[in-house]
């Protein structure tokens, strides 16, 4: 039983750390395109870890294996890239300025118009 608690606690802590890293990234990175990186990945993985903890916890309570959290994990990993893409599309549309030292930022106009 102690082993289950340890595994659950470990997954919870890993998840919380990644969620915190994603939120810190969102808070302190300087431009919108960079801020996009924190929430789409670190928080997704963090939530995945926390749901894994939930699976471990509820599977060893005698009510059989708990699988329904897989559905949330699946859904989150499916939708995170779509959200990121929609946000970046909107950012290009309203002409968000990237940081001054961004590589290839002279090509933003052609990216927006989906040219080469």
């Amino acid at each position: 039983m102690l082993l289950i608690e340890l595994a659950t606690g470990f997954c919870l802590m890993v998840g919380a750390i990644f969620l915190l890293v994603g939120s810190i990234g969102l808070f302190r990175l300087p431009d919108f395109y960079m801020r996009l990186h924190g929430p789409t990945k670190a928080t997704t993985l963090g939530l995945g870890a926390i749901l894994t903890a939930s699976i471990i916890f509820f599977s060893f309570r005698g009510d059989g294996i708990s699988t329904k959290e897989i559905l949330i994990i699946w859904f989150i990993f499916l939708t995170a890239p779509i959200t990121a893409h929609m946000l970046s599309k909107a950012a290009l549309h309203v002409r968000q300025k990237p940081r001054a030292d961004t590589l290839n930022q002279d090509r933003l106009a052609s990216i927006r118009e989906r040219r080469q």
């Binding site: 969102l26 929430p39 963090g46 939530l47 009510d63 949330i72 989150i76 309203v94």
Partner: peptide
């Protein structure tokens, strides 16, 4: 857009909080 992405991250954090509440209370 910055506010929107902050809100989106808050959604994810809220899910995590609810899942942890479920573990804490021991209720699925």
């Amino acid at each position: 857009l910055d506010r929107l992405i902050a809100l989106d991250t808050m959604y994810i954090n809220a899910i995590a909080l609810i899942v942890i509440l479920g573990i804490f209370r021991g209720s699925p």
